[in-house]
């Protein structure tokens, strides 16, 4: 059922610009209005979410420590997994954000006959995740060449590297294939791994399908129904310098591609995809393990009702004196 909902929604989203452009040639709507709208929602949405997180305090120092803490000088500290300095935290966060370090720990538990519980190292999820996210990142970087004039050299460099397999003209880009591989793995893992299937809901399948459709339409306009790149670039540069003109391109698939990207952008801030920004705020990873070295402040700390020593001694004084325990007051 969740897969059905997600696929219906994706199809529906493809049909909107398909009909809008194919039948009614609504270029102003799909080429300009929708894109501006999506960017506005994306930027303001992400800022809104980040502000809400940033506004709520971190009252306690709660890092999840994954290694030996700083202790006696002769005990070797794990400076990355139990950092006591900000530099250590930065390294920990970089490893987490760039290389998904925690997923490298992943293992599968299997219950064998005779009640033996065994664990198997499992790097597939890590691999699929890296494949997907890194490809997506590189794809976004090399799309910059459609927005910037002159094209920065690093973008050219990445584009050149990505197109090393010159099987077609224009060259087939490696990351396009890798991201498809990543998405297909992540999708079928959700569908066929019983545990993951159980936890998956439609909003887990939908983003995968959406991005899959974006990649496919992108491939189509690059390799099959080719579009005029220079024309599109002129259109996009106009768009981004707030001097939009109607795109000359008449290829419907191009507008579907644009519309799906716009959907992704406006969907992102209000869905689980916001993990992109959220991971940086995670207090179990971005705090130092130094809570006995430096006092952590709770901004909403308030006085509480305690049982004072005096009240306590009042209750037990007589019995304490009987057994010779020292007391503050004689009676």
């Amino acid at each position: 059922m969740p897969v059905l909902y997600a696929s219906l929604l994706t199809l529906f989203l493809i049909l909107i610009p398909g009909i809008g452009i194919g039948l009614f040639n609504m270029k102003a709507l799909f080429g300009i209005v929708v894109l501006y709208g999506a960017f506005l929602i994306f930027i303001s949405g992400v800022i809104y979410r980040v502000i809400i997180w940033a506004k709520s305090p971190v009252p306690f120092s709660i890092p999840t420590v994954c290694g030996q803490a700083k202790s006696l000088p002769w005990i070797r500290q794990n400076k990355i997994e139990s950092p006591h300095t900000s530099w250590g935290v930065i390294k920990r966060m970089l490893l987490e954000v760039l290389f998904f370090r925690s997923l490298l720990r992943n293992e599968k538990g299997r219950l064998k006959t005779g009640g033996r519980l065994l664990f198997y190292r499992n790097l597939l999820l890590w691999f699929g995740g890296v494949l997907f996210h890194w490809s997506l990142f590189i794809i976004i970087i090399r799309h910059l060449r459609l927005f910037l004039e002159p094209v920065p050299s690093f973008v050219e460099f990445i584009y050149g590297l990505d197109g090393l397999f010159e099987l077609f003209t224009p060259p087939l880009l490696i990351t396009d294939l890798l991201i498809l591989l990543g998405i297909i793995y992540l999708f079928f893992r959700r569908l066929f791994d019983p545990q993951t299937r159980y936890i998956s809901i439609s909003t887990d399948y939908f983003p995968l399908m959406l991005i899959f459709a974006i990649v496919i339409t992108g491939l189509l306009i690059r390799h099959v129904q080719k579009v005029d790149i220079m024309g599109i670039k002129a259109f996009l540069i106009g768009l981004f310098s707030f001097n939009p003109s109607l795109p000359k391109e008449s290829n419907t698939i191009f507008y579907i591609h644009l519309f799906l990207v716009a959907t992704l952008l406006s969907y992102l801030p209000f869905s689980k995809l916001i993990h992109m920004a959220g991971v940086f705020f995670s207090p179990t990873r971005n705090l130092k393990n130094s809570s006995r070295m430096e006092r952590h402040i709770n901004p909403w700390d308030y006085p509480v009702l305690v049982h004072t020593y005096e009240e306590w001694e009042d209750e037990f004084r007589a019995a304490m004196k009987d057994v010779g325990l020292p007391v503050e007051k004689e009676n």
Partner: peptide, 16 residues
Amino acid sequence: RHRSFRLFLDICVRCG
């Protein structure tokens, strides 16, 4: 009061 609470509810991707 707790960034952790809202953040953890917001960002889980159910990767499993």
